[in-house]
Design a protein around this nucleic acid. Structure first.
Lengths: 243, 243
DNA sequence: AAGTGGTCTAGACCACTAC
DNA sequence: TAGTGGTCTAGACCACTTA
């Protein structure tokens, strides 16, 4: 994976931007990069397009390729994940120790909504997994997840007390790299308040996600209720659609 | 723009998926599409890659290209924008009439944070624009925006009572297609409660965005406080990074 | 007019999956 | 073994910006 040519160019250019090797904020033109890296122009463009889609650079026809000043000058602003895949990993822990408390774990028939979202048939069963996640004994998230039995037949209590994605990757080699997320906010319920140590006036952030396996199978529907101080979702939005 | 070959293939394939022309959930292989559309394989791949990045299809090496069942079968789930560009346009109005009330409009020197985010120098000035947006007299968002004078010198009271992005596009031809967004939630302040008709226990959703011009110039910093029922942010997240 | 990014081609070879 | 998507090449021509 890391020996792919366009990946190496991508990584190298990112590093060079960090090192401030382009003080004019302008990258060399594509034909120069082609010579410098001894690759075709297509390969240069591939690396540059990925950086453009990530908001690292802006390309302007007729004039050149320019660094997004915010990417280089202010990493504190421009730190983003745009994702919640592998929750234990993607929430910033700041050195705090993450833990999981299993609140509920059972098998139920999929209701109509779950059938739609997980592409199941009537009569199919799903695990219902309710977990409370904490950092250093400070609970920050109630997670209610539904996983079809047929895509993860081996789930046990021990498994769901850790990272389900890691278990899946270890046992089947499949990874979860795609999801469809919805983000909202709501007043906290009494249960939220009790589990997350919230005052009645303090709200929760809600993240709902459908997670997909690499082959497109919907793998999990997850409803996450977060202590509002922990909802901080960053994305770079690009409406250009130049894939 | 719309006469680009890869765009036509993209539009055509999307339409054919909607029309259920691929009942097996599998698209023709790339070499067949190449012949069918009479283009090179690269062009086929370009269209397919965009669809994959949008979550419409999944590609699996060795086996083929498959439709995301949720895209085809459930458009109500899979409607997303992943964006807040052009707020008046992108918030769903459901036939309700959008309106803007100008609460504040003045010119101030950019503070340190704004200097960083808008890439300004000490002494540069910005417009401060505070607006209340409503649908059918139901206020849903307080918007506090900062725009450098030098990137939009012609702003007037009349202008900021409408769509600033539309004004910009009309007067300079520049469009805003990229932004960096942060989404959070918080208890409502007394001002929120008054302006948005919220009860003290009801929260606000917060969207902060830095919007960029096509050439990479940061154009606006916007802090949006939304009635919590109106925060509903959808994105398709793809960690593959195969841009 | 020169320079730069965008689109597209025709084809080679590789990696993975299914049978 | 055959089929499929992934990577990469070498080059042509176009569209836009700058001078």
């Amino acid at each position: 994976m890391a020996d792919l040519v366009y990946r190496k160019i991508l990584a190298d250019l990112k590093q060079r931007i960090q090192n401030d090797e382009f003080p004019t904020q302008k990258l060399p033109d594509e034909r120069s990069l082609m010579v410098e890296y001894d690759v075709s122009r297509s390969t240069v463009k591939r690396a540059l397009n990925i950086m453009a889609n990530q908001g690292i650079i802006f390309k302007k026809r007729g004039s050149g390729t320019f660094i997004n000043p915010l990417y280089q000058k202010n990493q504190t602003i421009f730190q983003y994940e745009g994702s919640n895949l592998g929750v234990t990993d993607s929430f910033k822990s700041d050195g705090k120790i993450p833990s999981i408390k299993l609140l509920e774990f059972r098998v139920i028939p999929a209701n109509e909504e779950l059938q739609t979202e997980l592409f199941l048939n009537p009569g199919d069963f799903v695990y219902e997994i309710k977990r409370l996640r904490s950092f250093d004994d400070q609970p920050f998230m109630i997670e209610l997840g539904y996983i079809p039995i047929k895509v993860a037949p081996g789930l046990s209590v021990e498994t769901v007390e850790g990272s389900i994605f890691n278990f899946l990757e270890g046992s089947t080699g499949k990874t979860v790299t795609k999801s469809f997320m919805t983000i909202a906010a709501a007043p906290s319920t009494p249960e939220d308040q009790e589990l997350l140590n919230l005052k009645p006036v303090e709200p929760v952030g809600i993240m709902e996600g459908i997670f997909f396996l690499d082959d497109g199978t919907p793998f999990e529907v997850s409803n996450m209720r977060l202590h509002y101080k922990y909802l901080n979702y960053n994305t770079f939005v690009n409406l250009d659609e130049n894939g």
